[in-house]
Design a binder for these strands. Structure first.
Lengths: 303, 303
DNA sequence: TTTCATGCATCAACCCTCTTGATCCATATA
DNA sequence: TATATGGATCAAGAGGGTTGATGCATGAAA
């Protein structure tokens, strides 16, 4: 059974407009309906209620007692509804929830988000960090920053920046073995998360495809930020995206012993549900990225 | 454009139910819809608002912030709506508006309506009288008493009583011409509304088809009650439905000089819109008539 | 672990509601 | 009397909304 059959909300909506205008034609104009449609809906409602709601006088209609009793309450209810909707609209238009990896959040967003907020004083920002993959059906977020290939079904993706990596460690730790001169020197140290494929890629690129990383199955941290912290503390060598740790380098807490950086095909992307692409706040965020990030563009490096 | 497109009341209604049950399936059951339909409506609403309203967790769903903000207001609005409707229903179920001719109202209804009200203490009665034909589109009435053939398009008719008539006058007036012995005596008196076809019918039946009534084009009153009043006052002879004036006869204010009564094929009927036939108050009124009026039956004497 | 049960998403197909446009009718206005 | 306004009625058509089957993910149970 159709829903409108049990509870004629549409008919009520039409009734409300007619009661206000006291004219089928005018009400139709307001609602974008023909006079016929209005007539039909009113008749429907009247039949359902078993009561006439309007008296059909020549050239004008009048509310019956029943209609007059009903009208104000229906009006109120619909005002409430539309208020609720527009209120919700403006509130949620007003806060942008960004879900990012901890790494990206702390090393890039935290540093640049100020500009977005200056440009969009009416949009509050909520920044959430989760480990890797998020599902917009399961997490409340308007946009997300993901690392990947830039292809997710149902999601629109904009390229943010390439992701490359290189070993980094604390200067003290480097000194402890008399400095790091060549890649194999690193193997004298504890490797933070040797299972990370990045290590293999990097050593291969450096000319040592057979470096015995597996021998050191130490900590598995998962989040780059944590590995970096461990490296700063001198617990070992981590493989990191150098741009994110320029500060640490400048402050002498980390060094990047080799120029060589590698990529694994995964990069940073801004993603959001296809269907939400026209939301004002998402537009604003795109505009901010376009302005702030030279490499920002939709669906860029498909390699 | 469909109305639901601009303002998704149906979707909101579904949303309200889902928010209450926190389950698409349950909500569907409540509304008499399939889970699919519910899913569809929610998605519709979410797309329209550009906001997720529910988080799809395994085996249960949760309101998002946006959804949680929206739900209570929508609930309130719909409660208001359904309250308004049921309130209106019960109020108008509670008063029966009867539209009758002044004659019938004062001579039959007024006398018997007490029984109806005893039987139906919860139904208030509003008795309105208008001259003849009423249009349910133009007058607020639940039922009407009409004189006619019992055939009106769109209306259901129940036979109430035959309508017959005979001359009546005040005893004083009769004495003034030495008593009324035979029909032609009446012509010595002023005929109240000689244009009334009833006179011609009656005189013809009495054996005087050529009685010169047209000679006395006096008052045209229209309502039987007024003619009766004129007759009581001794202003002339009226042609009336004798049953309605038994009191006046008993009190010596009117006499019925001849036994002969005539009919013109028009009788008294209870009528109401076909569509309203199931209304409780109309049922109650029918029950009352069945009980009170032996001749009461639906669509009876088609002659 | 494997299997089962629950609950939502997706898809294609169909029905019926709702809308449209034309026409008719009644009445108020000029 | 002629014209304009506003609602009712009718047939026809579109598409919104519904259904039922199916798939998928997860939690509970075996």
């Amino acid at each position: 059974m159709k829903i409108s059959k049990q509870f004629p909300v549409n008919a009520l909506r039409v009734f409300e407009a007619v009661a206000r205008h006291l004219s089928f034609t005018k009400a139709g104009e307001e609602l974008g309906l023909t006079q016929t449609a209005v007539s039909y809906q009113i008749k429907l409602l009247e039949d359902l209620l078993g009561e006439s709601l309007f008296l059909r006088r020549p050239r004008r209609i009048t509310l019956t007692d029943a209609g007059a009793r009903l009208a104000p309450k229906v009006s109120e209810a619909f005002e409430l509804l539309s208020a609720a909707i527009s209120d919700m609209r403006s509130t949620s238009e007003g806060t942008l929830t960004i879900n990012a990896t901890a790494t990206f959040a702390s090393h890039w967003l935290a540093r640049h988000l100020g500009i977005f907020q200056l440009d969009n004083p009416r949009i509050a920002v909520r920044l959430e960090t989760t480990q890797e993959i998020i599902d917009f059906n399961k997490t409340e977020a308007d946009v997300a920053i993901r690392v990947g290939q830039g292809q997710w079904p149902g999601l629109r993706a904009h390229f943010l920046m390439r992701n490359h990596f290189t070993p980094m460690l604390s200067p003290k730790l480097a000194e402890s073995i008399g400095g790091v001169r060549e890649p194999l020197d690193l193997l004298k140290l504890r490797i933070i998360d040797p299972g990370d494929r990045w290590w293999r890629i990097w050593f291969t690129a450096a000319g040592y495809p057979d470096a015995e990383l597996d021998l050191y199955p130490r900590s598995k941290m998962g989040a780059q930020a944590l590995e970096a912290a461990a490296a700063v503390a001198g617990h070992g060598v981590a493989i990191l995206r150098p741009e994110f740790y320029q500060d640490d380098v400048a402050m002498g807490r980390l060094i990047q012993p080799f120029e060589l950086t590698c990529e694994d095909g995964s990069h940073y992307w801004l993603v959001y549900p296809e269907a939400r692409r026209h939301a004002a706040k998402i537009r604003a965020f795109r505009a901010f990225l376009t302005k702030t990030l030279p490499s920002f563009e939709e669906r860029a490096p498909l390699e």
